[in-house]
Nucleic acid binder design. Sequence first.
DNA 1: ATGGCCAATTTTATTGGA
Length: 255
Amino acid sequence: MKLVTWNVNSIRARLDRCLAFLERTRPDVVCLQELKVPDADFPFEAIHGCGYQAAVFGQRTYNGVAILSRTAIEDVVRGLPGDPTDDQARLISAMTAGVRVVSVYVPNGQSVGSDKWAYKLAWLARLLDWLGSIDRDDPVAVCGDFNVAPEERDVARPEEWAHSVLCHSDARAMMLRLTQSGWVDTMRLHHQGPGPFSWWDYRMLAFPKGNGLRIDHILASSGLAERCSAVWVDRDERKGTKPSDHAPVIAEFGE
DNA sequence: ATGGCCAATTTTATTGGA
């Protein structure tokens, strides 16, 4: 089973690239983030034409997450529990291909100390609470843009990013709690770094200069992680015309 | 062997991203 997570930074702006990626890579399941469309404007027909079902939790302008699958998608749950006042479309979960799949878009946090920073930490705390209630013996994959580079080896230039919202110790502590509670960072099963990176800023020639960070992750429950045979980043997706600033992260699972 | 922000909307500026 080939599983992908990809922050596309607008599904409408990225549709052609997204379809070409599906044709070339033929993943079984794809978690998308930053759709930036309401459900009504999601390109269901084009995705179906590629052979994929889609479960969508969209939102106008910002956020929006989806799960695509070549097989049936069941038990779709939209939104992260724990705060009835939160109306941001940042999490969708569903059963497909024998796995509970979660597509997450963690808040960026903008700047340390801002209102958005507080929202990021509160959202991560809610995510940890919710994931704590899930049995890690079941096959579960939590995939998405976590907006956290968990360790120094996840940053090409750590000194440059030391004070950013992506590397702050409070955010890193949340990721550490996840990986210490039975959620396996699948990339680190197969690659010890530095890198591979999954995001490069559009500005300042970050990509050609190699100024990347690993902020997109595929976490697997203990039960699923045992089946993880390979993980990699499709770096080529960051090249060429109109790329997303994120590259897809891909994990392969046996059986 | 990549390229000097990008996308959406509030649209010829502004906001948020990360």
